[in-house]
Structures are given as structure tokens and as C-alpha cells.
């Protein structure tokens, strides 16, 4: 298992290694600036965060909740430090409280987040998970997502850590449990196999 490091922890002596994500160089070494898992290679070191708020990026698909509608635009909570701004045309019949799957059109230098192409989501289960775990939920080339969808459940995963699940009660429950497992075991090896065993097994998730 990779080592857990904390902000300010020295990751390598000297400044030869490239300081990747979650790290910085000082005079005498490379240090972590994030609480996370250290990833050390021959030529570089980085830290994958274990926690943290979602930072909006152009092209991401996120799930937002509309907070207010003002002047032909919706202000959308996207579980980030910044709200999203969604210009509306007459056809979008959206109101405050609606949940939308939406694309991030752009993020400018003062972190104004513009959204586009909203798709309203109805009567499903909305679940919040740490956004840093989303890559594990999606899996390599979408493999984990594919596994989760095998049951026939409708599943949308926002890059911002919001997940939308729709299906019969039993499947929704099972999917939710699987997602919780992914969050808890995100930093361990062999995650896909563990989830596969869980989903395909007869067990109802009570066994560990």
C-alpha cells in the first residue's frame, strides 16, 4: 500500500525529483502540500489527495442543484468553492431545487464557472461522495462504471462527487453499498475485484 503523507512532510532529499501534483520544492527537498497518498517514481514524486473540494475544470460533467434563477440564468451549486452559472433560453423549464446533469463550458481566470447543456434528472437517489474518489468510481476506461451498471441501474456520476442512481429499490441499495465500498477502499489495491465479488456474490454486503 502507498504511504499516507501529510502537508509539510519531506518526500525526498535534494531537489532532483520532479515535484508533481500535491508537492512543492524547497531548498533541501521535495515536500507534500496535500494530505494524501505518495506516488514516488524514479524521476518524480506526487501526492494523490485523500480529501478535498472539487475544482471545476472545462469539459467535466457534473451534477448540480439549482439554487436560484435570476435574469435568464440559473445559479447552480456544484459542490465546489464556486457556483456555476447556466444561461437559460426559453426552452429550459428549470426552477430552483431542480437537479441537473450539466457540462462545464468554461472556467475563467477568476474562477467564474459557465455551464451548458443541462439535462434535468427526475426522482432518483442523489448521493454525495468525496470528489477525489470519483476516478475510482469510474475506473480504468470506465471499467468500474460498466461493472456497476450491469444490474440495469441508471447511474450518472458527476465529476464533482455527486452520483445519481435510479432503478428498483433493491438494485439502488446494492449500488449504493458498492459505492460506499469504493469510497472506503479507494486507496487499496485490487478494488475492481473486490467490488465484482460484492456485486456478483449472494451476500448482501454484511460480510466484510
Amino acid at each position: 500500500m502507498r504511504e499516507v503523507v501529510i502537508p509539510g512532510e519531506k518526500l525526498s532529499e535534494g531537489t532532483k525529483l520532479h515535484a508533481g501534483q500535491g508537492t512543492y520544492k524547497a531548498d533541501d527537498g521535495v515536500y507534500a502540500n496535500t494530505y494524501g497518498l505518495m506516488n514516488k517514481r524514479e524521476d518524480a514524486v506526487s501526492v494523490v489527495p485523500l480529501e478535498g473540494k472539487y475544482m471545476p475544470r472545462e469539459g467535466d460533467k457534473v451534477i448540480g442543484v439549482i439554487e436560484a434563477i435570476r435574469f435568464e440564468a440559473a445559479f447552480v451549486d456544484i459542490r465546489s468553492a464556486y457556483n456555476g452559472y447556466l444561461p437559460l433560453d426559453g426552452r429550459d423549464r428549470l426552477k430552483a431545487g431542480d437537479v441537473v446533469l450539466v457540462d462545464i463550458a468554461s472556467v475563467n481566470e477568476i474562477n467564474k464557472v459557465d455551464l451548458e447543456r443541462p439535462m434535468k434528472l427526475y426522482e432518483g437517489k442523489l448521493m454525495d461522495i468525496p470528489s477525489v474518489k470519483i476516478p475510482r468510481v469510474v475506473g480504468h476506461k470506465g471499467s468500474m462504471l460498466e461493472l456497476l451498471r450491469k444490474s440495469g441501474v441508471t447511474l450518472f456520476v458527476g465529476r464533482n462527487g455527486r452520483v445519481y442512481i435510479k432503478g428498483d429499490t433493491e438494485t439502488v441499495k446494492k449500488t449504493e453499498e458498492a459505492l460506499n465500498m469504493i469510497v472506503e477502499l479507494a486507496h487499496t489495491d485490487g478494488l475492481t475485484d473486490k467490488i465484482k465479488d460484492f456485486l456478483e456474490g449472494e451476500s448482501n454486503g454484511n460480510e466484510k
Binding site: 502537508p7 512543492y24 502540500n33 494524501g36 489527495p49
Partner: peptide, 11 residues
């Protein structure tokens, strides 16, 4: 603060 994943130079 560290637990919130907020980037910091040190504790």
C-alpha cells in the same frame, strides 16, 4: 484543515 484536503505548505 489538512483533513479537509486543503493544500498547505506545512502544518
Amino acid at each position: 484543515l489538512a483533513d479537509a484536503g486543503i493544500p498547505m505548505k506545512d502544518m
